[in-house]
Amino acid sequence: MKTIQLFDKGVYAPVIFLLLALFISCEKDSEPEKQSTDPVEGLKKIHEFADDSHTVAAWNETGEFRLGYTKVYFTVQDKDGKYIDSAELNAFPEMDMGMMKHSTPRSEITKVEGKPLYEAYYNFLMYSGQGNGVWYYDLSYTVGNAAGSFDDVVIDVKNAFRPDGTTPVTIIKTFVGTDEKRYVVTLVEPLHPKVGVNDITAYIHESKSPEYPALEGSFTLKLDPRMPSMENHSSPNNVDLTWNAAEKIYRGKVNFSMTGYWKLNLILQDDSGNIIYGNAITDGIEASSLFFEVEF
């Protein structure tokens, strides 16, 4: 009988199919990246200014300035819309609080290798409107013999919130250390944390208003991530932040065992191990005076 023959021989086919279907994962490799000619692909425009000869625009991934670390890209175009890759740019942000003015830790604007694009970061200490302050900057450029400046441009620095959209999040911290110096520590990564192992990077600046010199090397940020809602649950094998000379940033590893709200407790130490700011977590002390917050 034919049916029986079929079963004698073909009985393994559905089995093998089942096993394969169950076991083989359906994940595909991501498509190869397309080579783009548009220097601002994937970036959102924050604002742009034009004079008779050139247009200068500021861009970043979110299209806005925000409290704490904000990466900004600039482009300079001529009247034909051609991107200029030999410009020099300057921008000096200042907050006018009526009684006083202050700036904020920042980098110079430098050229992005291989693209007609310029980059800088601003670690905004305050958001616009905080203490009735107003942020603005003077943005100037030089292209060959041509030069221009857009002065007193008001910039809108948004406050940073936790995912609920209303609770402010701590991602930048100013304090006076045990050495009586004033410091600013700014969290750079992880902005989009994931469970498991994450890179963590930060800047340390000294506050000598109006200047905020970056402190390059000779400090350590000891790291102890905790979940206050999980009775201060921690994670294993975190790596303290130390100076990475190649990238000019303090770099370490932070591990998240689950999603949720994490407090990244830090202790700032100098190269002799002296505590400049922050404290260890012990039985009675649940957090350091120096911490950042992430929630995902």
Binding site: F23, S229, M230, S257, M258, Y261
Partner: peptide, 20 residues
């Protein structure tokens, strides 16, 4: 295939759930 989730709800309802 064995798959198991744990989602924990913090006391503060505005806080993100803890998932693993």
């Amino acid at each position: 295939r064995s798959y198991a989730e744990m989602t924990m709800y913090p006391a503060d309802p505005n806080e993100k759930t803890m998932f693993m």
